[in-house]
Each structure stands twice: as C-alpha cells, then as structure tokens.
C-alpha cells in the first residue's frame, strides 16, 4: 500500500471526517494497514494499549471473559468506527478483548507515536480529543442504558 493510499484511507474514515489534510499527514506517520481473520484478536485485556484501530471493514466484538460464563460481548464495532480509547489515558492498558467477528480490515495507529505527536502539537492533540471524547461519552451512555436492562421482564 502506498503512503498516499494510507493517508486517503485515514481522511476518508468516518472517525476523521473533515480532518485538516495537514493533520492527516501527521497521523499517517503513525499508521499502518492491518487485517484480521475472523477469530483473531486485535487486542487482549491487560495488555499495553499501544494501538488503536480505525475499522474500515468488518465487525469487531468487544468482550469480557468470565469464568463459567464464557466471553460476553458488550459492544460491537463496525465499519466507520474505532476500537481503542485506552491508549489515550494512563495506564494505557486494554480493559477488554477485541475479537474480529469476521474478516476485519483496519488502519492501526501506533499509540505512542500518536501521543508524542499530540504532546508536541497541541492543535493536533485537541483535534484528537474532540474526536475521542464523544466516543467515550457515547459508550458511557450506552453502558448506562445497558445497565438499566430496559428490555428485561419486570421484576
């Protein structure tokens, strides 16, 4: 894959919609194209969160595995969405497993590389924050609704 193609993929991804091309170049420097077969893991709970993924194709299941209950999927991530917010805040550690539910094509971004660039260029940092914070808020909202167990039969 050419550098140009990679940069185009980043700029065309819904997560980076409307991003200034200059930031695209900066981010591209941390990016590589990746692919996971169904069943492969993008990351594992407890490992350092040194990557994040822009999903270009396929479905990723975010899971927590519990003894006796197996792997429980609490969210799925689809084309145009991202896997990984743990890279943004210390201790930079994954708190779930991310498994490719089918063939997944994604752009992997090196977290250390991105953090360093954001630290040097706060404009880039702010741009990243504006895009990641809504993901966090949306997941928190979804978690609240799931916690309410809205569709459960009344006790």
């Amino acid at each position: 894959m050419t550098v140009e193609t990679l940069e185009r993929y980043i700029l065309e991804h819904r997560f980076f919609e409307g991003l200034e091309p200059a930031f695209g170049s900066l981010i591209r420097g941390c990016a590589r194209n990746v692919r996971f077969e169904a069943g492969q893991y993008l990351c594992r709970e407890g490992e350092p969160a040194d990557q994040l993924y822009l999903v270009r194709h396929g479905t990723v299941a975010l899971e927590i595995s519990a003894p006796g209950r197996g792997a429980l999927t609490f969210q799925t991530v689809h084309e145009g969405e991202i896997v990984g917010v743990s890279w943004l805040v210390p201790p930079y550690r994954w708190t779930y497993d991310a498994r490719a539910a089918e063939l997944v094509r994604a752009i992997a971004l090196d977290a250390r590389c991105l953090r360093d660039k954001a630290e040097r260029d706060h404009d880039l940092g702010y741009e990243l924050m504006k895009r990641f914070v809504p993901v966090l808020v949306e997941r928190l909202h979804a978690t609240r609704l799931q916690l309410l167990d809205l569709y459960a039969p009344p006790a």
Binding site: T59, A61, L62, E63, R69, G70, A71, L72, T73, F74, Q75, T76, H78, G80, A101, E102, E138, H141, A142, L145, Q146, D149, L150, Y151
Partner: peptide, 23 residues
C-alpha cells in the same frame, strides 16, 4: 438487530439500538 449482551456465538451487533441509525 442489536442486543445489549451476547455470548460468544452471536454474530450480530451488540450495543444500544440508536447506534444502528448511522448505519
């Protein structure tokens, strides 16, 4: 179709229903 929680053999979506709208 999306569900609030699923065991490993579910191939569909997991998450709240409003997340389906952008798709």
């Amino acid at each position: 179709v999306t569900v609030d929680r699923a065991a490993g053999d579910w191939r569909g979506s997991v998450g709240v229903v409003t997340r389906l709208l952008p798709r």
